[in-house]
Structure formats: C-alpha cells, structure tokens
C-alpha cells in the first residue's frame, strides 16, 4: 500500500499497462519529454522510450486521428487531450468516428483506444480551460466515459479502459491531481460501469463524479453533524455504461436523490439520471429529485468567482437541508 497523488496514480496506471502489453503507446502534447503539463505522465518516456511515448504537434485532430489509425491497425493507444475543453477541436472523432467504427464494419475493425483529458475546474483556468465535459462525450452510442475521483480508482479504471476493446474517454479531474490516497501494491484492474457507495446513509442519496465526490462526502459529514441528516454518497466513476442498478437500489433505500454536478445545469448528466429514476423508481420517491449543478454560465476566472459557480460543500449542504426540510 502506498500513498500516491492522483497525478502519480495516472502515471502508475499508464506504466502498469505499458509494461504489461507492448501494444500500449502514449501520445499527446508534452506527454513525453515534459512528463505532461500536469505531470501526470512523468517518467513514462524514460521507462518506455520514444517509440512508445510520443510528443505530438499542437493539433488535437492529429492526436486523435493518429490514435484512431493506430488502434484500427493493432495498437492500443492512450491519447491525451490536455484540457477536456479542447475536445471540441477534434470532436468529429468523438462524435462520428471512434464509437461507430466497430458497428459500421460489422466488427471487422475495432477501435481500442483511451482518450485521457484533464476535466473540470477549481484551479482558476477560466471559461475555456475549466469545463466539465462529461455530457459532451456520453451522448454517443459506442463510447464509454469514465471519471475517477481517487488515486486507486485512477489506476484500476485506467487499466480497465486500456483493456476494453472499445474506445473509452477517461476524464481526469484537474482539481484532484494534487490529492492523495492509498493505492494497493501490485497490479490493479477495476471494472467499467460500476458505481461505488462511498458512504452508506439512510435519508438521501448524493450522486457525484470527479471533484464533486470529495465535496459530497464532506457535505454528508456536515449534514450528519449539524442536521442529523444521514446521506448516502455514490461515486458514479463511470457515466457510460451507467450503473443504474446501484443507483436505483440506493433510491429504494433512501427515497430522496440529489445529483451533484460540476457542469452547467442544462443537459447535465444528472438530468439523465433523474429521468431514469423517474422512469424506474418514481414510486420509491418521497420528494422531487434535486440537481445541484453549476449555473448555466461560462466559468469565471478569478478564484472567488469561480468558487461561486462550482457547487461547494456549503451549497450542497444547503440544497439538501432545504429540500429535506420542505
């Protein structure tokens, strides 16, 4: 067992898979010599050499295009898009290519690649470098979308993503790179499409991903201490496939549900989850499902204004308290 930062866990996960399988390669802007702008790929070039760790030009289309070609011809590339926001530059691959290849070739051509992106805010990078793009990716059939919140989950889910025969979008959270957690020794391989109940509770369910997970856990502790509200906290970990069984079972126990989302309110992933719960667990509900989200505004750059946009522990506590008291 070792204490690793989230960014060290990314490098460890990549190294674990590159050591296991020679077909796994890493490419992206500054991922090799510089060890990544977030230092999340530190040491990969030194260990695996320039043939398998490639610095690319500043062209997101070139990165994803070459990754797709490599994947179709037998490699298992891990491509990095430095900021999730930039995926818009190369969106054709996400929207039209990766997830459709296997289907359109009747399974003759597969696309086993992973696209890593630094997602989300909390580090005052402004409106074009702080967005949460889960819902930009999860709407396309054929794509899987993973968003870990802890170092151990980073290693295990990254390994599962690399080994998956289909394209996987892997959303690392910028605001979590410096956070630490216990990571077991040895090889770690997790399962895509599984949520985790991080804190059992009886009064309501908080559903979160990424940086909203630690904030929801802190909110749950505060709700318990100050208001006697016992909240269950679920880390989705995977948005596609979605572990609806765990979510619905939790709603069946607590009868109240809150999504905690960093993305703007309109069409956030929480809307999809609330819709599923309304379809399948309506008569388990003791009150309206509540989405705690960023407002529908561009994210501010100054830290004190950014903090007003992204749901804080205090906002989560207040939303839950008010809704349960109503």
């Amino acid at each position: 067992m070792a204490q690793l930062t989230y960014r060290e866990a990314v490098a460890r996960g990549i190294a674990q898979e590159m050591a296991r399988d020679e077909d796994v390669v890493l490419l992206g802007e500054d991922v090799a010599k510089a060890g990544g702008v977030f230092k999340a790929t530190d040491g990969i070039l030194e260990r695996f050499g320039p043939r398998r760790a490639l610095d690319t030009p500043i062209s997101e289309q070139a990165i994803l295009g070459s990754a797709m070609g490599a994947a179709m011809t037998g490699l298992k590339p891990i491509a990095e898009i430095m900021f999730g926001d930039f995926v818009a530059v190369c969106y054709d691959f996400i929207a039209n290519e990766f997830g459709k290849t296997r289907y359109m070739t009747d399974g003759q051509v597969k696309c086993p690649l992973v696209v890593r992106m630094a997602n989300g805010g909390g580090v005052a990078f402004g409106a074009q470098h702080s967005q949460s793009v889960e819902n930009w990716c999860m709407q396309f059939p054929g794509l899987k979308v993973v968003a870990p919140s802890s170092p151990a989950d980073v290693v295990g889910l990254l390994a599962a993503a690399v080994r998956d025969p289909d394209p996987v979008i892997f959303l690392e959270h910028k605001g979590l790179y410096g956070t630490r957690g216990e990571v077991p020794d040895g090889e770690i391989v997790d399962t895509l499409g599984t949520a985790k109940i991080l804190r059992p509770g009886t009064d309501c369910t908080l559903i979160a991903v990424g940086m909203m997970v630690p904030r929801s856990l802190a909110a749950a502790e505060q709700l318990k201490a100050d208001f006697g509200i016992d909240a269950e906290v679920i880390d989705l970990r995977s948005l596609m496939p979605l572990d609806t069984r765990t979510l619905l079972a939790s709603v069946g126990r607590t009868h109240r549900v809150f999504t905690v989302e960093e993305n703007p309110r309109v069409l956030g992933w929480g809307a999809e989850i609330v819709s599923i719960i309304a379809d399948e667990a309506f008569f388990d509900l003791d009150g309206p499902p509540v989405r705690i989200t960023a407002p529908h505004v561009p994210i501010s750059t100054p830290p004190h204004l950014e903090a007003l946009v992204i749901p804080s522990v205090e906002r989560i506590v207040e939303a839950v308290r008010q809704s349960l008291a109503a």
């Binding site: 309506f282 008569f283 509900l285 003791d286 009150g287």
Partner: peptide, 17 residues
Amino acid sequence: APPPVRGRSQISPRARK
C-alpha cells in the same frame, strides 16, 4: 396569504403507493 392547502405535490409518490 393563500390558506395552506395540501395539494397533490405534498404527498410523495411513495406515500401514495
């Protein structure tokens, strides 16, 4: 102020079931 009225929305779906 309107008198408090217990409308449909104030009885939860689970309670109705």
